[in-house]
Design a protein around this nucleic acid. Structure first.
Lengths: 134, 134
DNA sequence: CGGAATCCCCAACGATACTG
DNA sequence: CAGTATCGTTGGGGATTCCG
């Protein structure tokens, strides 16, 4: 528990500090860090899918439709090394591999759903705002 | 209110549909769309900053430290055309421009804070998980 | 002060082919 | 089935310079 941690209780609090606000080293901000991981092209989609039930590799490959094996592997490996997804290998012939959310991954579903709900509630406003500028 | 919309009430619900799950056209998923906008390099930071109070251009430039004028302009313009940020020009000499969140932008602060809280609560677990894999 | 214009780089992503 | 290997593309972002 460092002094730094209490200073970044939430991202909002980070920026409620008195001016001049030292925003540099934003890389160390856990919020930005987490968001940048969640927001590559496929991560969110895979997390929500795996939130439903475990999937095997080619199940995911078929379900996502458009993802290449390369990106599927890469994304899953990152999720795994972040402790959000578990990979279980069944030594059958042919081989079978199952991916499922860890408890940590499951705990991410709720805040993600909050953001998702906001998106669903407001994406129409964003769309019309965009058209005004066009 | 299309049938499509009821099918994507939340991103989680999207993937609770019976298999085979047609996840293609994920571009049209409002959740993914919103997330991809919020998650470029500077957007989140600027939103949280502007959640504190209005800022002038060079105030933001100094506050963020590391952002180039180009990216600051680009990010603010995108936020503006998405209806999340308002830009007000004061025809003084020298010119003065103020940026502030719109009500829509303000409404985004709350779900963002939820995700931020999750990040603060769990980034340590992610960090240790990462080191295990290293 | 608040930008716009220009140039450049690199990491993310895609496509394809191949393998234990 | 569950990946790896290789190559090619692209656009997000940085650095710099200039302007009303």
């Amino acid at each position: 528990m460092t002094t730094r941690n209490t200073a970044v209780r939430t991202s909002l609090d980070t920026h409620r500090l008195p001016n001049p606000v030292p925003i540099g080293e934003y890389e160390r901000c856990p919020v930005t860090d987490v968001l940048r991981r969640v927001n590559d092209k496929w991560t969110l989609l895979l997390i929500t899918l795996l939130g439903r039930h475990p999937y095997r590799f080619n199940e995911l490959h078929r379900a996502v439709e458009g993802i290449s094996p390369r990106m599927l592997t890469r994304t899953l490996r990152t999720l795994e090394s972040d402790g959000l997804v578990e990979r279980e290998v069944f030594p059958t012939v042919p081989p079978s591999v199952e991916y499922r959310l860890t408890p940590l991954g499951v705990s991410l579903l709720e805040p993600l759903a909050a953001l998702a709900d906001w998106a669903v509630d407001h994406h129409a406003e964003i769309a019309t705002a965009r058209q005004r500028t066009t």
